[in-house]
Amino acid sequence: MSIFSTLSTKPWVAERGYVSDSHGFGLPTARVFLSVFLGVVTAIFGLLTAAYFIRMTYADWQPLPVPALLWLNTAILILSSVALQWARTSARHQQADRVRRGLLAGGALAFAFLVGQFLVWQQLGSLGYFVDTNPSNSFFYLITGLHGLHLLGGLVAWLRASLRLWRGAETDKIRMSVELCAVYWHFLLLVWLVMFGLLLVT
């Protein structure tokens, strides 16, 4: 039932006196929770992007040189997402071994990405591009920092799922966690690609 036909029902006559089974969506609750949360995160990064564009138009803005390491980090994050996707499909097919490998690889790569981002910060710092040197730098540190924090939060969820798996939980039991991790990873990858693109074109 579309949202419009839902909103146009007349509750004072429709089906009065009868129960209808329409309550809640067919989706699992944890999935809905994640979707709404991703909406909130989208708002954060959307607003940062808007602020970026506004601040960019001021005279003192000097573009930040793009460190080559960022390309490597981007590749690592893509691989991390791919690995988790692999774990996700394997979980659907009950292949516990592959879930384990996929999950481990995904988490390790995400961790590598975070280390890589930290190295980028160090590189930029040693070249004299500090957070307060220029507004473009400030935005770069802010965006990468917030993105990294979100990934770090994802790693906590990842760690919980992994520990349960290693303690011998059935694949079925953690399928939802793996699924949610994968979706969250894809989302953060998308956010990163947009933010990285923003850095490249400006």
Partner: peptide, 24 residues
């Protein structure tokens, strides 16, 4: 607030009892 707010929204979307349609 975001933690609470996610709860309120998802509860309304997911935890309505049988027969509690949105327009009821």
């Amino acid at each position: 607030f975001t933690m609470g707010g996610l709860n309120y929204v998802v509860t309304v979307l997911q935890a309505r009892t049988r027969g509690m349609t949105l327009m009821r």
